[in-house]
Simulated assay, not measured.
Amino acid sequence: MQADSNQPTEQYSITAQASNQNMSELAKLEGTATVEMTINGKPVTIELDGKNAPITAGNFVELVNSGFYNGLKFHRVVKDPGQPPFVAQGGDPQGTGMGGFVDPTTKRSRYIPLEITPEGADTPVYSKTLPQAGINKPPALRHTRGAVAMARSQMPDSASSQFYFALSDLSFLDGNYAVFGYVKEGMDAVDSIKQGDKIESAKVVSGLENLKKP
């Protein structure tokens, strides 16, 4: 199938089957956390929102804290001439857009459910986009420039470790992909990412105590 350059999906994301993993088996972020990535020698500070995306943010914090992202490259950067810049996508250990996290202990691939909290809601909607759930409200976490969100295949529960930075406002993705944080400092470094550039390092600099493991 021809990939749509305006969707962080298809062969650019994970092709595995949707997860049947029980949500009780997944880590959650209860509160906020801050991650610092070093890209091309420059720091990028990301604030993660565990209130509106507890499982999605928890998964990311857990992977960062384990050192999973260190050295992984950005396999997809979309900046079409004459169009607003789209995304810089990374987090695939294969570097192809086809891989995700495999637990070294269990040897099992780990996937997380699609998790989107509607604006004003107390709890997220799981495993469905907001349109699929019949919800007309926008999400609490929107695809504004600097948003950090999970890439996935067409199946809602197929996100694993691949994430993307929104390089401009991408409102057409709102309610369909799970935003879980925002770049707070270092957007200039994000803007400069080229395909093949690597995450030199990623570390949790605050809020690790808010990560609750099963």
Rank of each mutant, 00 (worst) to 15 (best):
S5D: 09
S5W: 14
Q7V: 03
P8T: 01
E10F: 11
Q11A: 13
S13R: 04
A16K: 06
A16H: 04
A18E: 12
S19C: 08
N20G: 12
Q21F: 03
Q21P: 00
N22E: 15
N22T: 06
M23W: 11
M23P: 01
M23T: 14
M23F: 12
S24V: 09
S24T: 14
E25N: 14
L26P: 01
E30S: 10
E30A: 13
E30R: 13
G31E: 08
G31C: 08
T32Q: 15
A33V: 07
T34E: 14
E36L: 02
M37Y: 14
T38A: 11
T38C: 12
N40M: 14
N40Q: 11
N40H: 04
K42M: 04
K42P: 01
V44M: 00
I46F: 05
G50F: 11
K51C: 08
N52S: 12
G58T: 07
E62K: 14
E62Y: 12
V64I: 11
V64A: 07
N65W: 08
G67Q: 06
Y69P: 00
N70P: 01
N70S: 03
N70Y: 03
G71P: 02
L72C: 01
K73M: 12
H75G: 00
R76F: 12
R76Y: 10
R76A: 10
V78I: 15
V78S: 01
K79V: 10
D80R: 15
G82A: 09
P84W: 10
F86Y: 12
A88N: 05
A88E: 09
Q89A: 07
Q89S: 09
D92E: 08
D92M: 06
G95N: 00
G95H: 01
T96C: 00
G97E: 09
G97K: 05
G97Q: 08
G100V: 08
V102T: 15
D103R: 13
T106P: 00
R108G: 04
S109V: 10
S109T: 05
P113D: 07
L114A: 07
L114E: 10
L114G: 03
E115P: 00
P118I: 08
A121T: 02
A121G: 01
D122N: 13
P124L: 15
S127K: 11
L130P: 00
P131I: 09
P131N: 07
N136Q: 14
N136D: 15
K137V: 03
A140I: 08
L141N: 01
T144Y: 09
T144S: 05
G146D: 02
R152H: 06
D157A: 04
S158N: 04
S160V: 04
S161F: 08
Q162F: 07
F163A: 06
F163Q: 05
Y164F: 15
A166I: 08
L167G: 00
D169G: 02
D169A: 13
L170Q: 11
F172K: 14
L173P: 02
D174Q: 10
F180A: 05
G181I: 04
V183H: 03
E185T: 01
G186P: 00
G186L: 09
D188W: 13
D188C: 04
A189S: 02
V190C: 02
D191G: 00
S192F: 03
K194L: 09
G196F: 06
G196I: 05
D197C: 09
D197H: 12
K198M: 06
K198A: 11
I199F: 10
S206L: 11
S206W: 13
G207H: 08
E209H: 06
K212N: 01
